[in-house]
Design a protein around this nucleic acid. Structure first.
Length: 887
RNA sequence: GGACGUGUAGCUCAGCGGGAGAGCACCUCGUUGACAUCGAGGGGGUCACAGGUUCAAUCCCUGUCACGUCCA
């Protein structure tokens, strides 16, 4: 006998290890099986599972379990990302907290050893958390972006792109993070609105004949100014073009140049130009061949290119000093408060600086072209479709991708420099040496590039590097291109776009046929959850409290496309209760001898009730299958919820009770077999979303009746039921029984008929067929509706309360128990409702345009509606008249 | 400033051209042996606002307002 409740705490670990040891997570070897592969979006190796991971991985697990049960060679390839900046920061913070020396004092090798030690210690955390969620990844294929194989792929890609001139070293302005002392890509920069000021500075003309006023939000950059620009069409400054101002503080003459970049409408119409510290000014500087004076060091302090009393000052200290000095010089013309966007590093949170350095860049524009075409041609489909526009927008305006980072944790750039600066880009140091020997004619010492690659460089190769590329492995041949990628839209540019570019360039094929962007889990105010904001929910706690299945079902049911998820524990609790409901329905079946029949054919069922539930089961199976195949996860969950609770438990189980406890052995046996059959189908359909509870029920019902052909549920075959199982006649019959009971209950409740009252249920007016059905199901109607008996009567006796069900008039003689005034009110209200309906429908049918132009079936539908409403109304009206005659 | 999305019951959300739905919350009733993590019934919405298209608009179009996200 089943316990009263499912116990997730004890069952989950047991079931998970049973799955894992059975080998069910690995794709079948059957060569005839169609491959279906998903690569996991690799979480940070030292991270821990947050609610977004829980959603993303639940959906992947739902898909992979579904396709596995459909007989495909389903591979869900797991792994983790070394996450350069994030991990390095964590370890540095840890070292600092433990009072250790900093990484720079420690040296590169020692520091990296520390990171590896941390990875060894905490790297299993997140994968273990995925296991707790029930993720059926093939752990035997687990990868890490710094694995030797994946590192080889990275070197191969780097060297190949370099030889194809798609990757190059260049001196350009980059976003520099002074806290982390590294370049970061455009994507890693977050624009934040902050309050600031426009400081209006007067720059005196060189010849002393006047001044020109410029405004800036970053006064300290004036130390690096090399020009003032005015618009060539601006009459105010026409005469000044080509002349010079003397830059205060620095005391350097700089030219006034004409450039369209200067907007006559803004401020004074003149702008200071700092080519080494502003992206727009950089372009102006190039056009006018201006000097580019870098005034900052790696830490954001003023360097030796500025006057000596500024050197070593932090950029913000320098800002104050510049302003104070201008004021002292009498050159500060105005201070204007303003709100403006300031770039911040998304990891460090500090203000980033445009900074002139040597970095490695990927020619993203060239790589983007095939990636754009692949989506245009539908070789990769983005779901929901709306994301394609975002993807195109980004791809068509893509900038060179800065891939070097001044960090230590990551893939070191495979470039070696000779003493004269000649660069040798090769996959190994030995090859670089060979090239150097060739180049110099003799041995020269080589120095490897100190920098590492952007984490997303290796993530960009993930769909094929994890399958063994550049080796032509059997996994690569079988599982690439992968089928579906499930990920968050927040990394569409970081990751999806880069995988598209890299995948197409190096394999000639798209990395995945379909991308499903899951919603983002946000906090109550709609803000993205993040550790720094402290608004994260811990999925592991939720698993502890409600079980993994409840969390999984909640996330699946709420995963509607294109909407953010706001998670509440109430909701999770509700779905935990849903699991309990199913558990107890199974318990009921067990208690009532429901057992599988060997070779049971659902088409052979005879009773209308059984034929009806079999048809409903078929319809649900069909709809769930279609939903899951099309990534309609929420639809699948809601279909199952309604079917299991409202159809199976509320009606089928209830209506079956008299049969299961009745004397008709043939009927009982059929119902027992049908219930067992439906339950098995339910377990299968629900398994992808609630794997633990269903697997446990599967096991605990294993010896009820005939043995199942399958072993564990995880490996069972997905239901494929023929449409012929749907029987419209049974549907109509059971529909009438359900409607009669529902209406009868409603009448009882609304009129406050005492619970103990047992009037008979009278069938006053009904077709032959209706009478037959009601009579056949009399025992269940009697029991469910708490009536004494079901009787056919030609005329309703005085004081009987009538109700109309599908054209049939039934009545409950309960006048003795009730308040007749209340009943009159009830009838009047119902009549009024019908009257309004009749009025609207009649008016519509009276409109010649409607009759002429609406589709015939719509017109017909309205005619039927009108006829039925009128018939119902007249029956209710005569009932009301009878009632009035009594009172 | 540009792009995209969202405004439906108290809350969280489905529905998206032919009479508005669910879960939770709320109210009433109920310990009939699967389940009180339950059952039965009920109240509650000019589907943001204004125009337009249509025989018909919550649904399509335009505009407005509010909120959100992304990109400048």
């Amino acid at each position: 006998m089943l316990e009263k409740n499912f116990d997730p705490k004890s069952a989950e670990p047991r079931l998970y290890s049973a799955w894992e040891t059975s080998g069910a997570f690995a794709p079948t070897d059957d060569p005839a099986a169609e491959p279906f592969s998903i690569v996991i979006p690799p979480p940070n190796v030292t991270g821990s599972l947050h609610i977004g991971h829980a959603l993303n991985n639940t959906l992947q697990d739902v898909l992979i379990r579904f396709e596995r049960m459909r007989g495909k060679a389903a591979l869900w390839l797991p792994g983790t990302d070394h996450a350069g900046i994030a991990t390095q920061m964590v370890v540095e913070r840890q070292l600092a907290a433990q009072g250790n020396i900093g990484r720079r004092d420690m040296g590169r090798e020692a520091f990296i050893a520390k990171v590896w030690a941390w990875k060894a210690e905490s790297g299993g955390t997140i994968t273990n958390q995925l296991r707790r969620l029930g993720a059926s990844c093939d752990w035997s294929r687990e990868r890490f972006t710094l694995d030797e194989g994946l590192s080889a792929a990275v070197r191969k890609v780097f060297v190949t792109l370099h030889k194809q001139n798609l990757l190059y070293r260049d001196k350009r302005l980059v976003n520099w993070d002074p806290h982390l002392q590294t370049a970061i890509s455009d994507l890693e920069v977050e624009q934040r609105e902050v309050d600031g000021h426009y400081w209006h500075f007067a720059y005196p003309l060189e010849d002393g004949s006047g001044e020109i006023v410029v405004a800036t939000t970053r006064p300290e950059t004036m130390l690096g100014d090399t020009a003032v620009a005015v618009n060539p069409a601006d009459d105010r400054y026409k005469d000044l073009i080509g002349r010079a101002v003397r830059l205060p503080i620095v005391n350097r003459p700089i030219p006034i140049v004409a450039d369209d970049y200067a907007d006559p409408e803004k401020g004074s119409g003149a702008v200071k130009i700092t080519p080494a510290h502003d992206f727009n000014d950089f372009q102006v500087g190039k056009r006018h061949s201006l000097p580019m004076i870098n005034i900052l060091d790696d830490f954001g302090r003023i360097n030796a290119n500025a006057p000596s009393d500024y050197q070593g000052l932090d950029r913000f200290e320098a800002r104050d000093k510049v302003v104070a000095t201008f004021e002292a010089l009498g050159l500060l013309r105005a201070i204007e408060p303003t709100r403006h966007a300031v770039p911040h590093g998304d990891r460090s949170g500090v203000v980033v600086e445009p900074y002139l350095t040597d970095q490695w860049f990927v020619d993203a524009e060239t790589l983007a072209q095939p990636a754009i075409r692949a989506v245009e041609e539908g070789r990769t489909v983005l779901e929901p479709k709306a994301w394609e526009k975002t993807y195109f927008e980004w791809m068509r305006n893509i900038e060179p991708w800065c891939v070097s980072r001044q960090l230590w944790w990551g893939h070191r750039i495979p470039a070696w420099y000779g003493p004269d600066g000649t660069i040798f880009v090769e996959e190994t140091e030995a090859e670089a040496r060979a090239k150097a020997l060739e180049h110099y004619g003799h041995e020269e010492p080589l120095r490897q590039d100190e920098d590492v690659l952007d984490t997303w460089f290796s993530s960009g190769l993930w769909p094929f590097s994890t399958l063994g590329w550049p080796e032509q492995t059997s996994d690569l041949a079988r599982f690439y291109p992968t089928h579906t990628l499930v990920t968050g839209f927040d990394i569409i540019f970081y990751w999806v776009a880069r995988m598209m570019m890299m995948g197409l360039h190096f394999t000639g094929e798209v990395p995945f046929q379909r991308v499903f962007f899951n919603a983002l889990v946000r906090d109550a105010s709609g803000k993205k959850m993040s550790k720094s904001k402290g608004n994260v929910m811990d999925p592991l706690e939720l698993v502890d409290d409600y079980g993994a299945d409840a969390l999984r079902f909640t996330l699946t049911a709420m995963s509607g496309q294109g909407r953010d998820i706001k998670l509440s524990t109430q909701r999770i609790e509700g779905y935990r209760n849903f699991g309990t409901k199913l558990w107890n329905a199974a318990r009921f079946c067990q208690m009532n001898g429901c057992a599988r029949l060997a070779d049971f054919d659902p088409a052979s069922a005879e009773s209308a009730l059984n034929r009806w539930i079999i048809g409903e089961t078929r319809k649900t199976a069909q709809a769930v299958t279609e939903a899951l195949a099309g990534c309609g996860f929420d639809d699948a969950a809601n279909l199952l919820y309604r079917f299991i609770w409202n159809t199976f438990c509320d009606w089928y189980v209830e209506l079956s009770k008299p049969v299961l406890t009745g004397a008709d052995e043939g009927a009982r046996q059929e119902s027992q077999a049908v219930a067992a059959w439906v339950l098995d189908v339910i377990l299968k359909l629900l398994h992808p979303i609630m794997p633990f509870l269903t697997e446990e029920l599967w096991a605990q019902t294993a010896d009820l009746g005939a043995a199942r052909p399958e072993g564990m549920l995880i490996s069972a075959l997905w239901p494929d039921l023929p449409a012929s199982l749907v029987d419209p006649i049974a549907e109509a019959q059971i529909g009438l029984v359900i409607a009669a009971i529902s209406e009868g209950r409603s009448v009882r409740a609304e009129l406050n008929v005492p619970h103990s009252a047992r009037p008979p249920l009278l069938v006053i007016e009904a077709s032959q067929a209706q009478q037959a059905v009601l009579t056949a199901y009399a025992s269940v109607i009697v029991q469910t509706l708490r009536v004494s008996e079901l009787k056919l009567e030609a005329i309703a006796p005085e004081g009987a309360i009538p109700f109309v069900v599908e054209g049939a008039t039934l009545a409950l003689p309960v006048a003795a128990f009730i308040d007749l005034a209340a009943e009159k009110a009830r009838l009047a209200k119902e009549i009024a409702g019908h009257a309004a309906d009749i009025d609207r429908t009649a008016r519509k049918l009276g409109n010649p345009d409607f009759v002429a132009r609406a589709p015939e079936e719509v017109v017909e539908e309205n005619r039927e509606r009108l006829a039925e409403a009128e018939a119902t109304r007249s029956k209710l009206e005569s009932a009301l008249r009878r009632l009035e005659a009594v009172v």
